[in-house]
Amino acid sequence: MSRIAARFAALKAEGRTALIPFITAGDPHPDVTVGLMHDLVDAGADIIELGVPFSDPMADGPVIQRASERALAHHVSLGDVMDMVKTFRETDGETPVILMGYLNPVEVMGYETFARRAAESGVDGALTVDVPPEEGHDLIQALRGQGLDAIYLAAPTSHRQRLEMIAEAASGFIYYVSLKGVTGSANLVLEEVERKLTEIREVTDMPLGVGFGIKDAEMAAAMARIADAVVVGSALVSRVEANASKPDKIGAELKQLLQEMRQAMDAI
């Protein structure tokens, strides 16, 4: 069983919902990322999603775009991100880590090399945002060959046939994008999310994560009632941004928000 599957199985046995924080690797400086990953775990993260910076993050809103820009100012590459995970793994062998990013850096590295190096570094899965199942065959093969999960997105607009295709391609969990928009958007409607999750459950038994637009503890708790995992990105990254000039403060800021979410989610 993969580390991701094992983690979801354990949470299910405890009746808890997974909390998955997202930060961009190298933001605001490559030296702080590994420390922040440990802070996130301390504050209750079950899985960590680590953003790989890209020059053209087409599916991201302004907050995560700027995080990419801050990391790229330090030339943080895909290889650097995997090295950070390797360092993180020296003291944390348990918490699953997923890389989230865009295809081009992976194309340049080569799918096989990427999958091998990711596995060697202790990465557990990859969500390559701009690779839909139709284009995913070779990448999925490479990831599976190294025992890595290929995480896939589902969207409000994904109809039944697409959901089946996504369920077929994905492993680990499915990440439901809870609104029509980019990361960090505002207009999330709980009933609609719930209806869609029910529809996705008709085609798969895989755990379902919900993300895009979850900003505070209240929203996290509401999502925890209907989903298997809650993903929090822009809300954390904006705290990184607000403290970019005083990086030693970032850890405490992220911990505070994440702990609030954790408590609210566990209280339901």
Binding site: M58, D130, V131, E135, A155, T157, H159, V177
Partner: peptide, 20 residues
């Protein structure tokens, strides 16, 4: 039919755009 010109072209976008 998938928009490929040999190895080029295709549809490399997030799921949020596939239906559109």
């Amino acid at each position: 039919e998938h928009g490929h010109f040999g190895p080029y072209g295709g549809i490399f976008v997030a799921e949020t755009l596939m239906e559109a």
